[in-house]
């Protein structure tokens, strides 16, 4: 039977520290850690039950496939002008891919989900490029921009999930990503138009982002400043 020297409460024999004040329990007569009695609570960690949404997934799939098929047939046999049904079929495919993580496979990794969404976007814009007379912009501009956005988005998600612990650090990562994207976008545009590779407007965005990120990092690192900001900015 041990008591907390700070709180005066009797502690369960399984406790090595007082759960109220964190004071360690030191009983000179019982220094052998292996003699600790069993933990009075279960050790197993519970998971929230998964929700089955297969019915909704089936319904949405039927509606999307039906729409795509009907439009394809109408385009093929009745309204034969242009390839208008490609837009509808592409939109249906994009919507279906966007719905996968929500409906069919909710435990899909977020990175894989973003990758699939990027592929769906590439597919849809590809359909538009195919239908337009000049499609050089697709390979020359759109695909590099999409790859840049994808890389930055994946990096941002990884940072937020693994490193960022607060709203401030998440905001810092977001601002940095925005700045880098603008620089990359301008360079890719210039490359597409065979212009000299240097930055103009994006340098202003990058400067602003750098200043904001520096301010946010300072606030994040200085705990007193962080607390002051939290007090003044709380909603």
């Amino acid at each position: 039977m041990s008591y907390c020297v700070n709180c005066g409460v009797e502690l369960d024999p399984s406790l090595t520290r007082c759960p109220l004040c964190n004071t360690p329990v030191i009983n000179p007569n019982e220094m052998e850690p292996n003699l600790l009695p069993p933990f009075p609570y279960p050790q197993k960690r519970g998971q929230v039950d998964a929700v089955k949404r297969t019915d909704l997934a089936l319904l949405i799939s039927v509606v999307l496939i039906g729409t795509a098929l009907t439009c394809g047939l109408l385009n093929l046999f009745i309204y034969r002008f242009g390839h208008w049904s490609f837009y509808v079929i592409g939109a249906c495919a994009v919507l279906w891919i966007f719905c996968i993580p929500m409906l069919l496979y909710s435990r899909l990794s977020i990175y894989l989900s973003i990758l699939l969404d990027a592929l769906a976007s590439a597919l849809y814009i590809g359909i538009i490029a195919y239908d337009l007379p000049d499609s050089t912009w697709y390979i020359g501009l759109f695909v590099p921009v999409l790859l840049l956005a994808l890389a930055l988005l994946l990096a941002f998600v990884y940072t937020v999930r693994k490193i960022c612990r607060s709203i401030l650090s998440t905001a810092t990562a977001f601002v940095i990503v925005c700045g880098l994207f603008c620089v990359g976008l301008e360079l890719l545009i210039r490359r597409f138009f065979d212009a000299r590779l240097y930055i103009t407007w994006s340098s202003i965005v990058l400067s602003c982002c750098t200043i904001i990120a520096a301010a946010l990092i300072t606030v994040t690192v200085r705990s007193r400043l962080r607390e002051a900001v939290r007090r003044r900015m709380h909603l």
């Binding site: 709180c7 005066g8 409460v9 009797e10 502690l11 369960d12 406790l15 007082c18 109220l20 009075p40």
Partner: peptide
């Protein structure tokens, strides 16, 4: 912490588990 300390101050023995 303040809650259980107050009970102890009022001479009510408290046994804690967590």
């Amino acid at each position: 912490k303040f809650f259980f300390r107050k009970l102890v101050q009022d001479h009510i023995p408290v046994k804690i588990k967590s």
